[in-house]
Design a protein around this nucleic acid. Structure first.
Lengths: 151, 151
DNA sequence: CACAATTACCCACATTTACCCACTAACACA
DNA sequence: TGTGTTAGTGGGTAAATGTGGGTAATTGTG
């Protein structure tokens, strides 16, 4: 589905242009309706086609709501999930609370991640990527599935 | 159903404007009739469409009333449940006792949470969110359903 | 019954957002 | 290399939304 790294500029109003190569797929897949929420592990945003998101939300809502960890996940993920539509120019207006969370300024990065995108501030993405590369080197505890993966 | 994060200002009279994108759903779902009560785990309020709340109240009332814990829940939830209607401008007047419980001042946050909303003071929400994020990271005791959740 | 306090309804203003148009840079093709 | 087309960017404007506040009706209280 979605893949690739795309440097993008946010404009003064907080809008980001979706790269043209993804637009057709997005409009056909979900009429341009998307849902953005936060990533709980990293300070970045997740961007789903509406249909994808609704499947996920169902699973999250089905979690036992008396369990504190599940409650937390519900508050964080559903609580931040915001419906977005592409405007006539193929742009999304990212709401201020989400921009603040991921500390998005002018320069951001859109990462294709299969069924979704991730949105990072460029600065944070570059730094995090370096960390990842360093950890992979020393990485001792890889799950079996990874050990056996041939590229 | 409901999702997303909405920063809102309470005015001097204690009124909050429901974001326009939710109004249609609320009016169609329950003619603008809502019920607010307190959350017993966190210092925030819960806001239900009337129909949703009535289902919940039935379940609460069905709890064994000789059980002290059940009595407590009944007193807290049903005792604080207050009927609210949107005014002509799509606003709700939050009663003083509920505002006091959740320590709501000018700046508040409305969180969509599936079948209901949560209302937080902005300050408390931001602080609580940071706690949640830290706990999710170090989270050892995640239920299986969560461990296997792929986003 | 009178008074005070609260609430509902209404209007007006400020801000934000959606929509539109225009410019520039990049690319493709001849 | 020149030209046409498309993508990305910036920004103006009208409409919608959010906010504040006045006033009349209602409620509760002495």
């Amino acid at each position: 589905m979605f893949r690739g790294v795309n440097p993008i500029n946010l404009d003064a109003k907080g809008r980001m242009a979706i790269p043209a190569r993804y637009r057709d797929r997005i409009t056909e897949h979900c009429c341009g309706h998307l849902v953005a929420t936060i990533d709980t592990e990293e300070r970045c945003l997740l961007l789903y086609p509406l249909a994808e998101w609704e499947e996920i939300q169902e699973k999250i809502e089905a979690l036992p709501s008396f369990n504190p960890a599940a409650r937390r996940i519900q508050r964080l993920l559903i609580g931040h999930a915001t419906d977005l539509d592409m405007d006539g120019n193929g742009r999304l207006l990212l709401p201020a609370p989400l921009r603040d969370y991921a500390e998005l300024n002018k320069k951001i990065v859109l990462l294709g991640q299969g069924n979704k995108f991730e949105i990072w501030s460029e600065e944070r993405w570059l730094a995090t990527r370096e960390e990842y590369l360093a950890e992979v080197d020393g990485g001792a505890e890889l799950p079996d599935e990874l050990q056996n993966l041939s590229l």
